[in-house]
């Protein structure tokens, strides 16, 4: 544990200050406590998913375990469709959101004048408007446009949610990239679009990666929009999971099994992505 004592100069020994002698012990205890605190509900979820239908009522006692729940859940057509839909919606929403906000953030970063100012004010104000002020009418708008309960009917509102915040963050990414690279590209024969696409965008990849991971996770786990803007045609995983314990009775074991399945892609994305997220968020 010597490398704790020899922590880098910038590290802030807040915990050490509280317990100057038992540094390492205190530190290890704190780390363990944090892990337990954050892992317990997930641990409980996994445990519940391995219990039989009645076994869930004494999760903390019995010793019977089964993987039947997973078989049962994966044999339900609605769960499979929901998995597929959620995956498609999350991926498409990520790609499209990043696409439209990268251009808008780039514009905010590179230009000055009345048009960027007006656009910035617009997204700044709309960032503050709470969901409830527009989720309800959004239902009517999607019905009017005949996209209710379809991919587009859920995708486009998701993109709209991300526009304000992401444009803001993207502006920060592009502010950190020296524009002379784009000037060089324009002199080297690129149009403005070419300079943006072939030079500025590749340079923004670390930031884009971080944002893509957060966006994907957010959409994968989103509930309110999915609840209000979809019905039977386009089942979404979070809604289906909630239905196991709301409408279809108290099927805790099935809900948990589905939730554990839903956790797997998120787990993969986060474990591989956390490095990029922390690096990319350094604005």
């Amino acid at each position: 544990m010597t490398d704790i004592a020899a922590a880098p100069a910038r590290s802030v020994g807040f915990f050490f200050a509280l317990a100057p002698r038992g540094k390492a012990v205190f530190f290890a205890l704190a780390a363990t406590a944090v892990c337990l605190l954050f892992a317990f509900p997930v641990f409980w979820l996994i445990l519940t998913s391995l219990r039989t239908g009645t076994g869930v009522y004494y999760v903390h006692r019995g010793t019977e375990f089964t993987t039947d729940n997973f078989h049962e859940v994966l044999s339900q057509e609605i769960v499979l469709r929901a998995l597929f839909n959620s995956f498609m919606i999350s991926t498409l929403a990520t790609v499209l959101s990043l696409g439209v906000t990268a251009t808008s953030g780039y514009m905010l970063s590179r230009f000055k004048g009345p048009i960027p100012n007006a656009w910035f004010s617009l997204i700044y104000i709309f960032r503050c408007v709470p969901y409830v002020a527009w989720v309800l009418p959004l239902y009517f708008v999607t019905q009017k446009l005949h996209i209710f309960d379809s991919y587009w009917g859920l995708l486009l509102p998701h993109i709209a949610v991300h526009i304000c915040f992401f444009s803001w963050i993207m502006k920060g990414f592009f502010d950190g990239i020296d524009p002379s690279m784009e000037y060089a590209a324009m002199i080297d024969g690129c149009s403005r679009w070419g300079a943006f696409w072939r030079v500025a965008m590749p340079a923004a990849v670390p930031g884009l990666t971080a944002l893509a991971i957060l966006c994907w996770l957010y959409t994968w786990n989103e509930f309110l929009f999915a609840l209000i803007l979809t019905a039977h045609e386009t089942p979404i995983l979070t809604v289906v999971m909630a239905q196991f314990v709301h409408e279809l009775g108290m099927e805790w074991h099935l809900m948990s099994a589905t939730a554990v399945i839903a956790l797997v892609p998120a787990l993969i994305v986060t474990l591989f992505g956390q490095r990029y997220v922390i690096r990319g968020l350094r604005i």
Partner: peptide, 20 residues
């Protein structure tokens, strides 16, 4: 650069908010 974002924003945020 801002047209796609502006279109989505207007259709799915400004219009619903005004409708509401």
């Amino acid at each position: 650069l801002i047209t796609p974002a502006a279109l989505v924003l207007i259709l799915f945020q400004v219009v619903p908010i005004l409708t509401g």
